[in-house]
Each structure stands twice: as structure tokens, then as C-alpha cells.
Amino acid sequence: MNAIRKRDTQGFFRSPLGYVYTGAFLTIMNLYFFAICVLSSSSDTGSVFSNMLIVFLFLMPILTMRLFSEEYKQGTDRLLLTAPVSVWEIVGGKFLATISVLLVALACTLPWIVIIAIFGEPAWASIIGCYIAVLCASAVFAAMGMFLSSLTESQLIAAVLSFALFLGLYIADMLSYSFDSDSLLGAVLSWLSIFTRYDSFMSGQFSLGNLIYFLSLTGLFLYLTARVLERRRL
């Protein structure tokens, strides 16, 4: 598992993609930070982080599209499938590699905290909560994107499918606002919505239920990916 994680993380930074990805993420997020925190002299990182998931919505497909599609295309899935490793190790390794890249991108946002600490009083609990929340929610996206990548040989199709799925989830979230929250549909949509749960994290409420929701959704898609890999042998 470690070998696969290492190779995939490095593989990401072997091509310009890794740098372009991190660069694009940081450019957009720094603009948000500048607009929300610096210009209005606010220490409200929650507002910055609530936009971060939207940015990930656009950028995550680029990160996950290659995970399996590229292996299929190059025929290297043969190497992985005939190695003495289980499909779980393959899936786990690739997932952790994606998370590692996310962590690199997130680590680059740490100067914000330093800036806030110099000029004001950071709300530590809220900041830590934000980081945990963005990690959990983007892990869900990563698992979904990886699952879609395992379905096709084409990176482009994988990217388009993931993008459509993420955008669909986002629209479902917006729909949940237009329905009355007393109605069944509204309640179901808002219960299912990743974004609603994410925002409740951002407002500083920690909820074990939300954490379990993110983790189990991630687990579900990791499981589905492993099943797809096993199905490929059939």
C-alpha cells in the first residue's frame, strides 16, 4: 500500500499537473482570503473555508481523473493486479496519495493563520474545525472521483463524470433551500447534502453525526472502487 501511495504522490508532482493544480488552488484561495479577511480586517476564516469546497468541486476531478484511468490505459493495472497486494491496498494507496496532495495544498494555506495571529486573535477551535471539515469533505470528493476514474479508461470521461457528479450534488444542495425544510424532499436533500453539513462545520459547530456521515460516504466509495477492480477480473 505504501509503495502505491508513494508512487502516486510522486507521480502527481512528476508532471506539471501537480504544480499547476496547487498553484491554481492557492491563487483562488488567496484571493478569497484577501477579499474576506485582509480587506475587511476580519479573522473570520470560516467564510474563506466555506468557499474552499466550491473550489475543490472544480479542481478535484483533475486530481482524481488519472488515478485508475491512466493505469488502465498504460496497462499498468496488470502489474498491480498480479502483485501480491489486495485490491484494498491498491485503493487505499491511491486514496492516501490523493489525500497527501490535498494536504500539501492545505499546508500552503497555513501562512493565513500566521498573518491572522500577527494582526489579530485567531479563533483556534474554529480554525482547526475548518481544516478537519475541509479534509473530510474533500475526502468524500476524492473517493467519488476515484470511483468514477476506476470505471473508465479515459481520463477525460472520468473528469467529466466527476465534475457532473459534484456539480449535481451542489445543485441538489441549492434545491434543498428552495424546498420547504418541513417537506420530506427538502429534509432528505438537506440531510444528504455534503455542503449543508460542511457549512454547519464552518459555523463552528462540531457534530459527530456529520463526521460519521463524511467518513462513511468516503468508505462507501472506497468500497465501490475496490468492487470495480475485482469486477474487472471477471
Binding site: R7, G11, R14, S15, Q74, G75, T76, D77, R78, L79
Partner: peptide, 9 residues
């Protein structure tokens, strides 16, 4: 038949 190689390594 096609060696499983990673071209970027």
C-alpha cells in the same frame, strides 16, 4: 504483452 511501465519514471 504490453510491458506495464510508467513512462514518467
Amino acid at each position: 504483452e504490453n510491458p506495464p511501465l510508467y513512462p514518467d519514471m
